[in-house]
Design a protein around this nucleic acid. Structure first.
Lengths: 155, 155
DNA sequence: CATGAATCGTTGAAAATGTCAATTATTTGT
DNA sequence: ACAAATAATTGACATTTTCAACGATTCATG
């Protein structure tokens, strides 16, 4: 054992007992960083990231969102949505259809291949989520989702 | 009212009822984006961001963390910590002290000015956190923090 | 106690993300 | 009919992330 670990009163483990350990904003940031990394790692098997997975999910869900709705929902700049949609469309997973009710807008629709891929990716995503919360009761899992919804959609 | 809103069955409001609305990873990302933005907005009054606030918090807390411990705790690359510490040190809010037990490492300590600024910033941060969870009971607030700790520190 | 392997902070470069202003096509309000 | 507003796109620019390399120091092992 190193001299350092013998002498130091406080190590990295104790940092979580500092003020930040009770700081919701910090906890949210760290929890997000870890879960995002886990999600990206498993989604990479399907050639997706959390971002493209989200776009594909909404297109496959028959919500028929416009790019602007997507941008707002995912908290992205509209120009970032262009790039994401470009990528998925090039892979023939989704299509842009000009909204007949507003020909300025594009409505996004998943192709059959897109739906297939999403179904697979969704299983992986679910597995990650369950793995992350393996130590928690289903009730607490749902309670967490409920509370996060409050933060994510403050009406 | 536009033709569009009259005809479309699904708008941006309904997106949250889609698959993603139950996706913990997405909810975390969106909740994090919103709270981070709120925190950054108010911390800007003190010349801080969430990142620099976190570094200052840990330095002011007498945890005497090394830069490496900070990097791990905040999930940052060590080189990003260098930049953050540079900024705070230039403003005389914290100091680098070479750890006598390991002369490769720098231990971070807050100056008196740093502690003062942190005390002020902390009040702002607390106010933001309470504002974000204003609609929630203190018990649920604590429950949320507890569940996030599980995700943020999976031991 | 000498020496090779590992670790800490730092630098710099490259890639990915985020932000913003301008443009075209279309729609809205009057 | 016409001015103002909105959707998507492009391109420029800043910020953030990621990675490899380096000098200084410490560690593990013989």
């Amino acid at each position: 054992m190193s001299r350092r670990e013998k002498t130091r009163q406080t190590g990295q483990e104790s940092l979580r007992d500092s003020v930040l350990g009770g700081d919701l904003i910090f906890l949210l940031a760290r929890a997000n960083a870890l879960t995002l990394a886990a999600a990206n790692a498993v989604l990479a098997q399907h050639g997706l990231k959390a971002r493209s997975y989200s776009v594909l999910a909404l297109a496959a869900d028959d919500a028929r969102p416009t790019q602007r709705e997507l941008a707002e929902f995912l908290r992205l700049d509209p120009s970032q949505v262009v790039a994401l949609v470009d990528g998925l469309e090039k892979r023939q997973l989704i299509e842009r259809r000009t909204d007949p009710a507003d020909r300025r807008a594009n409505v996004l629709v998943a192709t059959d291949a897109g739906r297939d891929l999403f179904a697979q990716a969704q299983e992986s995503a679910r597995a990650v989520e369950l793995g992350l919360l393996a130590t928690v009761t289903p009730e607490d899992h749902e309670r967490l989702a409920e509370l996060l919804r409050l933060l994510a959609f403050p009406d």
